[in-house]
Nucleic acid binder design. Structure first.
Lengths: 231, 231
DNA sequence: TGCGGCCATTCTGCATACAGTGCACAAAAC
DNA sequence: GTTTTGTGCACTGTATGCAGAATGGCCGCA
């Protein structure tokens, strides 16, 4: 049989997963959209969410919207007040520091694990992202730099090959994303952050988990410092 | 006026808060109930959840039940399969090891922070729980020991005064609770675990964060070992 | 006898309808 | 003038109804 279902795929054929038709439930789409709206500031912190109004804006009935709000509440992006519905969560400085502390611990763990278990190809991929980050920095493009920056951190966590860790990291990163959009750091801080990224890339390249964890720790301490000033 | 609403309550009268009628939303109740059903094994892993049947069993319509399932999916206790609904998540050994690794990192962080910021009274409370644990161990009561054990770990995380950390710990602990019910460890392993708890209590009493983190790490490594054997 | 296609059943996903609660504004009493 | 109580409105919480998808069984055919 030469059917698609053959257990021996042709050499050079793409894996079957690549042909899957992306079928996201409406619920999932609403969650994604809402999360973006919160993290990108289209919904202000403290703002009450009117279900009918928001539902109409999204072109969705209240049911999937409410389910999405429950999901976002689990991620800590909104708070559910009984009989008052959902409120966009507003983060105090302590909230941010707390989340940052956990984020730091998770990424340090990820860094150690990544150095231990990642393939050469995976590491090369992160290093390629690092190259991209350098270019963004040299060009002075803040938003692209910011996105590549996040991509690198996520990529390192992905290398750790630990879905639980990845999920928790995603949740915290989404919370921080909302905040980081605020601060436009000074030139010298930006340079320091970039220097730390150089260190991170070097540590990863030589699979030095402890060194990577150390610099990741410093990197987050600086990040929190930066946020503190902007607040 | 001597009405109830008087701002000057009679001496000896109980504070008004004591008369508050506890009103948890139906959603919250369903979430709690379902979570218990999963962690205590009343819903078998891999089992599909029939919304109408379960709704009738709980005496609730499908709407709040579905919302609760979304919440539980966020906690990783059930999986949502498109057009097939919710399935009780079944954990592979790797899943457990992954979650345990994160749980370990979080508790180590909590231990360090607890030693730094906890009040004497809070530490005394944990030490009291530890006394209780000793008694359970001496009496050989496994289930009460298990509960007190979890209470201690949760209490230490609470001392860290970091709600984000606490929430993530709760999620992971709920996942592990489902697993730990399985294994009834041998006598020698139990003794080792108890000895580690003695070390933990001592480290906490003298606020030695590093020592506490170290023993917590060993404690979780042993815990994973124990689960590995039972699997 | 084995396989493939068709059909019915079942259950999810989404929308809508209804009931109940809280809040704000206003009016009245002290 | 201040406080309090009543009433209307707006919005959430819950239930139910309806359409679509997937699964499993059954029958026909090779």
């Amino acid at each position: 049989m030469t059917s698609i279902a053959s257990t021996e795929p042709q050499a050079g054929a793409a894996p079957l997963e690549n042909f899957a038709i992306p079928r996201q439930s409406l619920h999932g789409q609403v969650v994604t959209r809402l999360r973006d709206m919160v993290t990108e500031g289209h919904l202000a912190p403290g703002q009450r969410i009117n279900e009918v109004a928001l539902g109409q804006a999204l072109g969705v009935s209240r049911t999937p919207l409410r389910e999405a709000l429950k999901t976002l509440a689990g991620e800590g992006l909104v708070e559910l007040v009984p009989t008052r519905g959902a409120v966009v969560r507003s983060f105090s400085l302590k909230d941010i520091a707390d989340s940052m502390e956990v984020l730091k611990a998770l990424e340090q763990l990820a860094g150690r694990r990544a150095c231990a278990v990642a393939t050469e190809a995976e590491i090369a991929h992160v290093l390629a992202l690092h190259e991209e980050l350098r270019e963004r920095y040299a060009a002075g493009d803040r938003l692209p730099y910011f996105k590549t920056n996040q991509a690198i951190h996520s990529a390192i966590v992905t290398l750790a090959d630990n879905p639980t860790l990845l999920r928790m990291h995603e949740i915290l990163q989404a919370q921080m994303k909302r905040i980081r959009f605020i601060g436009h750091e000074g030139v010298e801080k930006w340079a320091a952050a970039m220097a730390e990224h150089e260190e991170m890339a070097a540590a990863l390249a030589r699979r030095d988990g402890e060194a990577l964890a150390e610099v990741i720790g410093r990197h987050h301490d600086l990040g929190l410092e930066r946020i503190r000033e902007a607040y």
